[in-house]
Amino acid sequence: MDRPAQPFASVRPRRAVDAIIEQIRDRIQSNELKPGQKLPSERDLAEQLSVSRNTVREAIRMLEVSGLVTLKKGATGGAFLTNSNSAALSQNLIDGIALRQYNVKELIDVRMVLEQYIAAQACENASDEQIEELAALAQASRQAEDDVPEYEQRLDLHIEFHRKLSEMSHNGVAETLTGPLLEITRHFHLETGPTGGPETHETRQELVQALRERNPEAAKLALAKHFAALQSRLLVSHPD
């Protein structure tokens, strides 16, 4: 079982749950605890922290809600640090949109700024092989319009194109932020149904060509055209 090098420090019962969460967060930020690592058992943590197992259980439950910890059952189960907070962040944003804390225009505006930055970085950092892989995804997405009747499968190809583009920036923060935004975009498209047009594939070809030429301004222009069309389509179904 993976355990931190040093025992956890005992805490005051009055704020024990908060103190436990703070210690675990601190160790994540310092990389002492890493994604996928299993935390000590409830009993071990309770002994190290000088608190009850119920207190430990409550702290772990709150960490699970926040998306930092995943609970697994069985003999090899326990509390594991998640590999990514994207799913939890995506759900929080989707819930916020449902409560009208955000709207479609705000989503598209943020995506455009972020992905234009990503495209510019990809012009500098992506390998030729990665660019050709993106080109293949664009071609597969275009072909799927004729060959794949299931809309969700075609949508997944659209989303994968943008995920791949984010990887090509070689910027981990930008890639992490892109994931939840794409999940929300997918959520909207599943609600509205097919709304794409030929301009989607045309602007992707322009983007791929700009990447091949290592031309960041042309890449940003292609994305601006794409997002302008996307925003006009989504606003029809989500005017608020």
Score class of each variant (00 low, 15 high):
residue 114 L to A: 12
residue 55 T to S: 13
residue 112 M to K: 12
residue 45 L to Q: 03
residue 63 L to N: 10
residue 107 L to F: 08
residue 73 K to L: 10
residue 91 Q to M: 15
residue 108 I to D: 02
residue 102 Y to Q: 01
residue 115 E to D: 06
residue 83 N to E: 15
residue 129 E to C: 08
residue 114 L to Y: 03
residue 47 E to I: 12
residue 109 D to I: 01
residue 133 E to T: 05
residue 136 A to I: 03
residue 98 A to N: 09
residue 54 N to G: 12
residue 32 E to S: 14
residue 41 S to Y: 04
residue 119 A to C: 01
residue 51 V to R: 04
residue 107 L to R: 06
residue 54 N to Y: 06
residue 103 N to K: 02
residue 36 G to I: 08
residue 73 K to H: 09
residue 33 L to M: 14
residue 43 R to G: 10
residue 110 V to S: 11
residue 94 I to T: 11
residue 31 N to C: 11
residue 106 E to N: 05
residue 89 L to I: 15
residue 104 V to M: 07
residue 58 E to Q: 14
residue 35 P to S: 09
residue 31 N to E: 15
residue 30 S to R: 15
residue 131 I to E: 01
residue 38 K to A: 12
residue 43 R to C: 03
residue 57 R to Y: 10
residue 42 E to C: 02
residue 44 D to W: 01
residue 132 E to M: 06
residue 105 K to A: 09
residue 60 I to K: 07
residue 120 A to R: 05
residue 132 E to L: 08
residue 52 S to A: 05
residue 30 S to K: 15
residue 77 G to L: 04
residue 130 Q to R: 08
residue 85 N to P: 05
residue 66 S to Q: 13
residue 87 A to W: 02
residue 75 A to I: 04
residue 43 R to M: 07
residue 32 E to M: 11
residue 131 I to Y: 03
residue 133 E to D: 03
residue 71 L to K: 06
residue 53 R to G: 02
residue 99 L to Q: 11
residue 57 R to C: 08
residue 129 E to H: 14
residue 98 A to M: 05
residue 87 A to Q: 11
residue 72 K to A: 13
residue 39 L to I: 08
residue 56 V to G: 07
residue 77 G to P: 05
residue 37 Q to T: 07
residue 47 E to G: 02
residue 53 R to C: 00
residue 98 A to C: 03
residue 33 L to Y: 10
residue 139 Q to M: 10
residue 85 N to H: 12
residue 133 E to S: 01
residue 123 C to V: 07
residue 35 P to G: 08
residue 106 E to K: 10
residue 62 M to W: 12
residue 40 P to N: 08
residue 92 N to E: 14
residue 37 Q to N: 10
residue 29 Q to R: 15
residue 91 Q to P: 11
residue 105 K to I: 00
residue 60 I to L: 15
residue 34 K to N: 13
residue 135 A to D: 08
residue 73 K to W: 03
residue 100 R to A: 04
residue 61 R to K: 13
residue 72 K to N: 04
residue 56 V to N: 07
residue 69 V to F: 04
residue 48 Q to L: 00
residue 29 Q to I: 08
residue 121 Q to N: 08
residue 55 T to V: 14
residue 115 E to W: 03
residue 86 S to N: 09
residue 63 L to C: 11
residue 86 S to P: 03
residue 88 A to P: 06
residue 54 N to Q: 14
residue 110 V to H: 09
residue 68 L to I: 01
residue 53 R to Y: 00
residue 56 V to L: 03
residue 113 V to Q: 13
residue 50 S to K: 12
residue 131 I to A: 00
residue 29 Q to S: 14
residue 51 V to H: 07
residue 40 P to G: 10
residue 45 L to H: 03
residue 41 S to Q: 10
residue 122 A to S: 04
residue 98 A to R: 11
residue 122 A to V: 00
residue 111 R to F: 00
residue 60 I to F: 10
residue 126 A to R: 07
residue 69 V to Q: 02
residue 110 V to P: 00
residue 129 E to A: 15
residue 66 S to H: 09
residue 91 Q to W: 14
residue 115 E to S: 03
residue 120 A to G: 08
residue 90 S to V: 13
residue 64 E to Q: 14
residue 135 A to S: 09
residue 105 K to V: 06
residue 60 I to H: 06
residue 56 V to M: 04
residue 115 E to Y: 08
residue 113 V to H: 09
residue 88 A to Y: 11
residue 67 G to Q: 07
residue 115 E to M: 11
residue 102 Y to E: 01
residue 35 P to T: 07
residue 91 Q to E: 15
residue 116 Q to G: 09
